[in-house]
C-alpha cells in the first residue's frame, strides 16, 4: 500500500488533547471531530491539510487519553499516515484498530520538515523524502496488518474474515 503527501511536522508528546480537545468530544462523528483536529497546537492545520498528507513528530505521539476520537479525527482530516520516533501505547493500538497507518522511524522523523513530500510503502517500510531525495526504512507492515488497514480497521477486517469463513 503506497501513501504519498506533504509533511506536517510537530515535536514531542503531542497529546490527545492537542489532537482533539475534550470540549469537542460531545460528538463522535469522525468528520465533525476532524474539523477541530490539532486545533490547540496548530489552528491552521485543518485549513492546510490535504488528502494523503503525513503527520511527522518525535517522541510519545498520542500520549494522554484513551479517546479513539484522536486517530479518528486524524484519519478523517485526510492524513494517510503518522510517522514518529515513538507512540503512546493506547494511541498505537487505537490507530491500528481504526485503520490509520502509523510508523516508528526516528531518522525519517528527524530529517523531514513541514512541506516535504514523502512517499511511504507500508508493505516494505520504505519512506522516501522526495523533496530532500532521502530514503529511510521503517519496520514493514505484516500481511494481516495491511489487510486490516485496507479493510478500514479491526471490526471491518473481522467481519470480512467471518464472511470468508462462512462461504
Amino acid at each position: 500500500m503506497k501513501l504519498s503527501g506533504k509533511v506536517h511536522k510537530y515535536g514531542a508528546n503531542v497529546d490527545t488533547d492537542a489532537i482533539i480537545p475534550a470540549r469537542y468530544l460531545n460528538v463522535s462523528d469522525p468528520a465533525e471531530l476532524a474539523k477541530h483536529c490539532m486545533e490547540d497546537i496548530d489552528a491552521e492545520f485543518i485549513n492546510k491539510v490535504e488528502p494523503g498528507d503525513i503527520i511527522v513528530a518525535t517522541t510519545n505521539f498520542g500520549s494522554g487519553s484513551s479517546r479513539e476520537h484522536a486517530p479518528l479525527a486524524i484519519k478523517a482530516s485526510g492524513i494517510s499516515c503518522v510517522i514518529a520516533h515513538s507512540f503512546a501505547r493506547i494511541f498505537y493500538r487505537n490507530s491500528m484498530n481504526i485503520g490509520l497507518p502509523i510508523l516508528e522511524c526516528i531518522e525519517a522523523a528527524e530529517k523531514s520538515d513541514s512541506g516535504d513530500i514523502l512517499e511511504v510503502e507500508l508493505a516494505t517500510g520504505e519512506i522516501n523524502n522526495v523533496t530532500k531525495n532521502l530514503s529511510f526504512k521503517a519496520k514493514p507492515y505484516p500481511e494481516f496488518m495491511l489487510e486490516l488497514i485496507s479493510a478500514g480497521g479491526l471490526i471491518e477486517h473481522t467481519k470480512q474474515k467471518l464472511r470468508v469463513g462462512e462461504q
Binding site: S65, E68, I90, N97, L154, I155, T158
Partner: peptide, 25 residues
Amino acid sequence: ADSHTCTYGAVNAFATGMGSTDIAT
C-alpha cells in the same frame, strides 16, 4: 475505554486503558 483505568492496580488488579474498538470487541 478510559486511560485512567490503570487506577485499579492499587487494589492488586491488572487494569489498563484501551480505545473504544478494543472495548467493543
